[in-house]
Amino acid sequence: MTGGLTIGQAAAFVEVTIKTVRHYHRLGLVAEPERDGSGYRRYRSADLLRLVQVRTLATAGVPLAEIGDLLEADPEPFAAALDDVARRLTERIEHLIARRDTLHRLTGGDRLLLPDRACAVLERLTDLGFDPDYVATQREALVLARALIPEIFDGFLTRLEHSLDDPGYVELTKRAVEAASWDPDDPRIEELASLLTHKLLGDRALLSMPPRSRSDTAARYGAVNHHREDRAPAVARLNALIETNLRAAGIDVPYQ
């Protein structure tokens, strides 16, 4: 190659930028050519070959910090090093695929934070005619339950599934939703609390309570069971009465 190439020509031939070539020089991956009589560095075929080798390995995912040693390695360690790079690339690909799948799940709303089984319960509430605000509150409570008391989450879902199969319980729950607009001292609240307690005690095995192994168990349970009560004093009283009735029946409901 008579005269050699300028850095701009060399970069264009190898399909990288001039900045990239200079970066390779700074890292010691490609030696800087000697300057000619006019003061310009001229890249010859050997320089271009080295640039192609470095660019190819970098494009394949080999970290720049490893390329220098890799190019000086014998065939056997070279192959082993490439296998290691391939393994790491596979791990990165799997990680990126997982992140992509998470982004796709974002478009599915609930399914990012809740398992399909919980989403089916929420869909069932909608199908049964529950108010959208109530469904939204239950969605939030399920997210909290899964995060704060995961040890009883499956049992909690099982109770919900069984409850939604009981028309009587569904009707009482709809009355409880209506109770949000009642006065907290409305005498109907005590009656409704008694009826709901009776339904809950109909199958004690489904009343999953969190173990007392943590000092903050009551706070965790309360954050879930009393979610959004501050917006509806009548519902807060209804839940408090139900918890009192359950404790009286021997159910170990944590005190908040």
Rank of each mutant, 00 (worst) to 15 (best):
T2C: 01
T2L: 15
G3M: 03
Q9K: 11
A10N: 03
I18L: 11
K19S: 13
T20Y: 07
V21F: 10
R26C: 04
L27G: 06
V30S: 11
E32T: 05
R35E: 05
S38M: 08
R44W: 10
A46P: 02
L48G: 05
L48K: 04
L51Q: 05
V52A: 10
Q53D: 13
Q53P: 09
V54W: 00
T56S: 13
L57K: 05
T59H: 12
G61F: 06
P63S: 02
L71A: 09
R87H: 12
I93E: 02
E94P: 09
T102S: 11
L103M: 14
L103C: 12
T107S: 13
G108K: 13
L114G: 03
D116S: 12
A120H: 08
T126K: 13
D127Y: 01
L128D: 05
D133R: 07
R139A: 02
L142G: 02
A145F: 04
R146G: 13
L148A: 10
I152P: 00
F153T: 00
F156E: 12
T158R: 13
L160A: 13
E161F: 07
H162F: 14
L172K: 08
T173I: 03
R175D: 13
V177A: 09
A180T: 12
E190C: 11
L192F: 00
L195E: 14
A205G: 15
S208K: 04
M209H: 04
P210C: 00
R212V: 09
D216S: 08
G222K: 01
A223Q: 10
H227A: 12
R231I: 12
A232K: 01
A236C: 02
R237A: 00
T244G: 14
T244N: 14
T244W: 08
A248P: 06
D252M: 02
